[in-house]
Structure formats: C-alpha cells, structure tokens
Amino acid sequence: MNRFKYLTIGVAFIFFLTGCKTTPEKYEAFEALNPSSILILPPQNSTNSIDAHNYLASTLPSAVYSRGYYVFPYNTVKTVFEHEGLTDPGMIHSLPPSKVASLFGADAIMYPVVKSWSIDYAVLNTYLNLEVDYKILSPEGQEIWAVSKTFSQPMVDQNHGGGLIGSLIATAVTQAIVDDEDILPAASRLNHTLISTGNTQIPLKQNAVKE
C-alpha cells in the first residue's frame, strides 16, 4: 500500500515537472547564421544606478559561453573602444554592426540595455528588480535573438536555502548587508536564467566543441 502511495506521488511529480517545462522559441535566423562567436558590447545603462551596467557586464560572458559560443574578452573589448574614443555605450551601440563585427572578427553581436534597476526589501528575502533588453544582431544588422524582460530575482538563492527558517536567517543577513557581494551572484543567476533557460534561451551551439 505504502509503495503504491509513493509511486503515485512519484508519477504525479514527473507530470508536474514536465508540465513546467517550456518549449524554447525557434530562432531560425540565429540557427541559419550558426555563429561560433558572440561579441558582448558594453551595456547601455538608462537607470539611476551608477553600476547596474557593470553587474550585467561582469556576469554576461559566462552566461553566453554556457550556450557554447566563444565570448570576446569583455574588458579588452571595452579598452579597445575607449582607445578609439568611444566611452559611451550609446555611441558604441549605434556603430554599424558590420564595422564592429569586422573589427573584432565576431560572428554576432550582443547589445545589452538595462532599463530599470532597484533593490526591494521584502519580508522573506531581498529582491533585485530589473528590466533588461538584450538583442543579438548578425553582422548584416539582422536581429537574430532578443529578450526584453522585467525580473525580480531573490538575492538569496532559494534553491539552496533551508526552507522558511533558512530564508529567515538569510533575510537577516541580506538586509544587514546588501552590497555587491550579494548583488553580483543574483545578477549572475538572472543572466543565466534569461540566456540559458525557458523559452528565451539562446540556441545551443550546433556541433559545439566538447569542453
């Protein structure tokens, strides 16, 4: 009897899991281009936060690489632009994509924009609220992937928390000290969620070289 009960719960759980799975969108133009490398441009920051763009810039490379693409050295790219007198991301984003692609030898270019940014102290956790707009263009300027999303990301990863008590303790900690040590991992999880899960995920590199 007991065994039957567990089996029922198990089957129900599997149904629940498969029910949650979202089908990724088909990005046909992306798959047709089949890029090997993606150049991440310095993010445009249209918020009041002085470092919102830096949180995203630091955590985007690993998210994009996790889909199998070569990502260009972010700080080196930024330094080269600065050397050319291009310190404003807005100016960089308005350069012709073909020119940018050939300068770096990139197969595709990512244009990140952070549109809003705030930190919200709720009862059981502290939330990072964000609105971002990411798109990837081909060297010809065709949009091959895009995501525009408003997000609320818990500062403390609840998957690793210890239930309610764990969350309570975690809240005490995050509310006491919310500095970049807390925000950076949250920004990283957010970028990974946007880029490698759900229906907005960047298609996995076809014939990706195994690491």
Binding site: N54, S58, S62, N75, D180
Partner: peptide, 15 residues
C-alpha cells in the same frame, strides 16, 4: 572552474 573568480574580479576592477 573555467571562470575562476572572473566575475567578481572584473566587477571590483570597474568599481
């Protein structure tokens, strides 16, 4: 790990 402490160090460097 392939990235090591890159995210943290890069952010700190800009800060």
């Amino acid at each position: 790990t392939p990235w090591g402490n890159y995210e943290h160090n890069l952010f700190k460097y800009y800060e």
